Computed example of a mutant assay.
Amino acid sequence: MLILTDFIVPDLKIAPRDGGYARGQDGFEQILRAALTLLVEHGSGALTLRRIATESGMNVGNLNYYFRSKDELIRELLNAVISSYEDSFDAIMHEPGATAAERLEKLVTLILEDITTKKTTRFFPELWVLSNHDPFVQDRMEELYDRARVSLNELIAEINPALPADERETLALFISASMEGLTVFAGYEKPWRSRMPWFEQIAKRSFVTLARELKPGEIKGLSPDAA
């Protein structure tokens, strides 16, 4: 049995700023971490430029030096969040000696265990709330989840190369949505948190089986011969 090493998703991956902006790297990171803290600890209602500036130890004028608008700040925050996941996913995708099925299981474990953290349990639902009423946030969330599904899509293609692209994308979306849905039941301080190891076993077995055994056309209700 191949033993896979553990992976942990950092809270944020903030890219270094170029050129004349490099001097302000510390302040830039301080603001993004303050925004993340406010969203996790106090909810989306606290995510105002004034509250973020106060949490960062600066005034709104200073904050505007780094971010011209709240939309720009949210874009950078989401980019820093998803970049941290992409690095962790990439490490799993390129783990030496692991089969595609083993890497899919590892990816599932990483995501579900991450869901049990305070940051993830609170961060993403708050963004879902914002996206219901803010088209800009909705667009950023769709972009975020599109990027997050890339690894799932690649693994499904490796496990089952005969599956057409649209069916592979649909399966990747189903797997992603199934895991995300556990946030409200088994996330941080949620009633079924203690059962997350059980959910992990169910998820790994069922998702690998689906990826391996689905035949072209079956998702669309077609027989394999008609696909």
Score class of each variant (00 low, 15 high):
Arg195Ala: 14
Val184His: 07
Glu180Gln: 11
Phe174Leu: 12
Met196Pro: 10
Ala165Met: 10
Ser178Asn: 01
Thr170Phe: 10
Phe185Ile: 14
Ala162Lys: 06
Ala172Leu: 03
Ser178Thr: 13
Gly181Ser: 10
Glu180Lys: 13
Pro164Asp: 01
Arg195Gly: 09
Ala186Ile: 14
Met179Leu: 11
Thr183Pro: 12
Pro164Arg: 06
Leu182Met: 09
Met196Trp: 09
Ala162Trp: 05
Ile156Arg: 02
Trp198Lys: 15
Glu189Lys: 15
Leu173Glu: 01
Glu169Val: 10
Pro191Asp: 03
Ala157Arg: 00
Ser194Glu: 15
Arg195Gln: 13
Glu180Arg: 10
Ile156Asn: 05
Trp198His: 15
Gly187Asn: 08
Trp198Arg: 15
Trp192Leu: 13
Pro161Thr: 07
Phe174Gln: 05
Asn160Thr: 00
Lys190Pro: 08
Met196Thr: 14
Asn160Ala: 07
Leu163Gly: 06
Trp198Phe: 15
Glu180His: 08
Gly181Asn: 04
Tyr188Cys: 07
Asn160Lys: 04
Ile175Leu: 09
Ala165Asp: 01
Ala157Met: 01
Arg193Trp: 14
Ala165Trp: 00
Leu163Gln: 05
Ala157Pro: 03
Pro161Tyr: 02
Ser194Ala: 15
Ile175Gln: 11
Ile159Ala: 00
Asn160Phe: 02
Thr170His: 13
Ala177Ser: 13
Gly187Gln: 04
Val184Met: 07
Asp166Val: 12
Ala157Phe: 08
Thr170Cys: 09
Lys190Thr: 05
Leu171Val: 06
Pro197Phe: 09
Pro161Arg: 04
Pro197Asp: 10
Ala177Trp: 08
Phe185Thr: 11
Glu169Ala: 12
Trp192Val: 11
